[in-house]
Design a protein around this nucleic acid. Structure first.
Lengths: 111, 111
DNA sequence: ACGCATATTACGCCTACCGAGGTATCTTCT
DNA sequence: AGAAGATACCTCGGTAGGCGTAATATGCGT
């Protein structure tokens, strides 16, 4: 079975769904997507990017220099989208089951 | 902000919703709850139990000897239930957002 | 007698994340 | 001009949780 995908990794892939981005843009995008609940750390980000590239879930999408600042773009691959979908389904089934159990427990208390 | 709860930890708390259990029973219960998708490792289990007890999310619920075998029971606390509920809500919002983005991306491709 | 299920504990490794540091350019404010 | 802050990247050591395996012990079925 596949390993669980951690939260920062999940959000990185999610942020790339709307198009290729460079590292720094991913940090602000993840903050937005998580309603500021998660601050993507730089160490986490570049580590995750290397790992995801090795796994084929993201790929380099060119680099440019914008007003003197270097930008490296990455994009999500088809495998990356599939992995996100699989993880999403996994979260969903977990969430549904725990919600059912929590509800049943509350009913049990009430009766 | 609170840290993410890892999958094995999540399932341990979830398995305890239906009542106090001892370690070994948790292994079979987690396998059942996850449709055999997750095999809770012994090292993970007893490590998690120690940690969760220190955090006050589970508590010792007596121990007995059944047919010569030692059993230590643990039960989930109110804080434990609350933590599970919070994590469940977190998963849900993540899942909803990523599903929306995945759908939108597919629509974008179709048009 | 042997293997299997039950039941707990201990120990070291691995991996992703965290935190803090460094480099460099451009803009804005004083 | 100088300082501060936003933009943009990289690296490295530490930590936490999970993984894997071994050790220990009893009871049951073949």
């Amino acid at each position: 079975m596949n390993k669980e995908m951690r939260e920062p990794t999940f959000f990185v892939l999610m942020a790339l769904l709307s198009g290729p981005k460079h590292g720094y843009a991913l940090i602000t995008e993840v903050a937005f997507l998580s309603d500021n609940a998660l601050t993507l750390q730089v160490g986490t980000l570049y580590g995750a990017l290397d790992r995801l590239q090795k796994e084929g879930l993201v790929s380099q999408s060119g680099s440019e220099i914008v007003s003197g600042r270097h930008r490296r773009y990455v994009e999500i691959t088809e495998d990356g989208v599939n992995a996100l979908e699989a993880e999403s389904a996994r979260l969903r089934s977990r969430e549904l089951r725990v919600t059912a159990m929590l509800t049943q427990r509350r009913i049990g208390f009430a009766s």
